[in-house]
Amino acid sequence: MLVDDAVALVPSIPGRRAVLGLAGAPAAGKSTLARRLVSGVDARLGADTAAYVPMDGFHLSNAQLDRLGLRGRKGAPETFDVDGYVHLLRRLRDAPPERPVYVPDFDRRLEEPVAAGLVVLPQVRLVVTEGNYLADDGPGWEQVRALLDELWYVDTPRQVRERRLLRRHVRGGRSESEARAFIAASERPNARRVERGRDRANRIVVPGRQL
Rank of each mutant, 00 (worst) to 15 (best):
S39F: 09
V144Y: 01
A51I: 05
L151S: 09
A201H: 06
R99K: 08
V205N: 05
N62M: 09
L88Y: 04
D94V: 01
E111V: 08
Y133A: 07
R193H: 10
E178W: 12
A6L: 11
V3H: 03
P157A: 13
Q159C: 15
D155Y: 14
I13R: 08
P14G: 00
M55H: 00
R36Q: 15
R67W: 01
A201K: 02
G208D: 10
R158D: 15
R16G: 00
T156L: 15
L88Q: 10
D136N: 11
G46I: 00
R145G: 02
P100C: 09
F80Q: 10
D105A: 14
R73G: 03
N62Y: 04
R188D: 09
V128N: 03
A50W: 13
L65Y: 04
N132A: 12
V82C: 04
R192V: 14
L121G: 01
D199F: 09
R188Y: 06
A115R: 15
S39D: 11
P113T: 11
L121Y: 08
V119S: 12
Q210C: 13
S12T: 01
A115H: 03
P26D: 08
L70I: 09
V7I: 10
D107G: 08
D83S: 15
G46P: 00
A116T: 13
G72H: 09
G140M: 05
A8N: 12
P96E: 13
R180D: 05
R203M: 10
P14Y: 00
R145N: 02
A76I: 14
R17S: 00
V194W: 05
R99T: 09
G172N: 06
G172K: 04
R93E: 04
E130S: 06
A135K: 02
S186C: 11
R44Y: 03
G29F: 09
D105I: 10
A43Y: 07
R109I: 15
P77F: 10
N62Q: 13
D107R: 07
V103T: 14
Q143N: 07
L110T: 13
E142F: 02
D42S: 04
P104N: 11
V128K: 01
V160G: 09
H59N: 01
L22Y: 09
P207I: 10
D199Y: 14
E150Q: 15
R36H: 11
A146R: 13
V10Q: 06
V38S: 02
D155S: 14
V170W: 02
L121K: 13
